[in-house]
Amino acid sequence: MEIFNHNANVNFLGMRKFSVGIAILLMVASIALIAVKSLNYGLDFTGGVSLVMDYDQPVQVGDVRDALEKGGMEHAVVQSMGGTKEVSIRLQPKDDPQSGVANGGKVNLDKIADDVTKTLQAARPDAKLKSRDYVGSAVGEELRSDGIVAAIVVMLGIGLYLGIRFEWRFAVAAIATEAHDALVTVGIFALTQREFDLTVLASVLAVIGYSINDKVVVFDRVRELFRLARKAEPEEILNRSINNTLSRTIITALFTGITMAALYFFGGPAVHGFAITMLIGILVGTLSSIFVASPILLWLGVSKQDLMPKTKENPELARRP
């Protein structure tokens, strides 16, 4: 199945200055957004109390937020849970025995949940507590640092494999584009201030794995065409490789995107973060596979000699006439 001509000759490499310039700009902008605005870390990373409230009748998120503010619980994050009768409430308890937090920092989850329930029931008697949870900040900081280390290890591991399987230039191109894909994806979260939790972190790692799959397909075609061509310029080989694999790249991205869209619309709020991150990552990764990875290979000076099988010299053959 092909949606593009296998032998098309679109000059993707001719746009390399423009495409790589945009990629660098997006990376710099993402780093700036993460540094300035930071990420809207969820309770998995910051610690705090999370409650889910059920109502017998439909309720507005704004009404729940107003009731909490009137009860002295300011800055609570209230979100709909995908319906009109269930809401999620996240808040940071103050270091005050009256609010359920002792001076030592120990949280009385029962008291906090009871206070929230009574406050909401004062405004709406049909409010009922469905679930509650607490995450400590120390655990969240450890998870955050472990997540960063995991992403770096994944990219370096992929680079090491490609360096062994292909050639070091492919490893450099892969690591550079993987860093681009991960940074831009996370940068969009910093820009939109969507909640960044463990589910989103897991999907960022999944984006790295998905994205490298596209790039390896293109890289493999590059190696194959270099070995088959007697005389061909590297730019021509790279362009042909992208054109040959373009249908496969777009079809894979399209159907994976459809799956993630279905997960977002029908999978419930628990997987919204994962689905949104994957959709962003699929788009960014597909574009970088087409417009960024091959230009980096070209600038690194990849050639046919780098990809031909290496033969060992035989001293016995050298002595023969």
Rank of each mutant, 00 (worst) to 15 (best):
E2R: 15
F4E: 00
N7I: 00
N7P: 00
A8W: 02
V10L: 12
F12N: 01
F12G: 02
F12V: 02
I22K: 02
A23M: 06
L25I: 14
V28F: 11
S30Q: 13
I31N: 00
D44W: 06
F45N: 09
G47E: 09
G47Q: 12
V49H: 06
D56T: 14
D63E: 15
R65M: 11
A67D: 05
E69N: 15
M73L: 15
A76E: 06
V77Y: 01
Q79D: 10
T84F: 06
K85N: 15
E86I: 00
V87H: 09
K94D: 13
S99K: 02
S99C: 01
G100N: 10
A102N: 15
G104S: 13
V107M: 06
K111W: 06
D115A: 13
D115N: 14
V116F: 01
V116D: 02
T119S: 08
T119W: 06
L120E: 10
L120R: 13
A123G: 13
D126C: 09
K128A: 09
L129E: 04
R132Q: 15
S137T: 14
V139W: 07
G140L: 05
L143E: 08
G147A: 07
G147L: 05
I148G: 05
A150V: 03
A150G: 10
L156F: 14
G157H: 11
L160S: 05
Y161F: 11
L162F: 14
G163I: 08
G163T: 11
I164E: 00
F170I: 08
A173H: 04
A173S: 15
I175T: 11
I175L: 13
I175P: 03
A179Q: 01
H180Y: 04
D181W: 00
L183D: 07
L183V: 03
L191I: 10
L191Q: 03
T192D: 05
Q193L: 06
F196D: 01
A202V: 12
V204K: 11
L205Q: 07
A206H: 02
Y210W: 09
S211I: 11
S211Y: 10
N213Q: 10
K215I: 04
V218T: 14
F219T: 06
L225M: 13
R227T: 02
L228R: 15
L228C: 01
R230T: 14
K231C: 05
E233W: 05
I237H: 00
L238K: 01
N243F: 10
N243L: 13
L246K: 08
T252A: 09
A253D: 11
L254I: 07
F255Q: 00
T259E: 00
A262G: 15
L263F: 12
Y264P: 07
A275L: 01
I276R: 07
I276D: 08
T277D: 03
T277H: 11
L283M: 12
S288H: 04
S288I: 05
F291R: 03
V292E: 07
S294F: 03
I296N: 09
L297N: 08
Q305I: 04
M308G: 06
P309Y: 10
K312Q: 14
E313M: 07
E316N: 04
L317R: 11
A318Q: 14
R319C: 00
R319E: 13
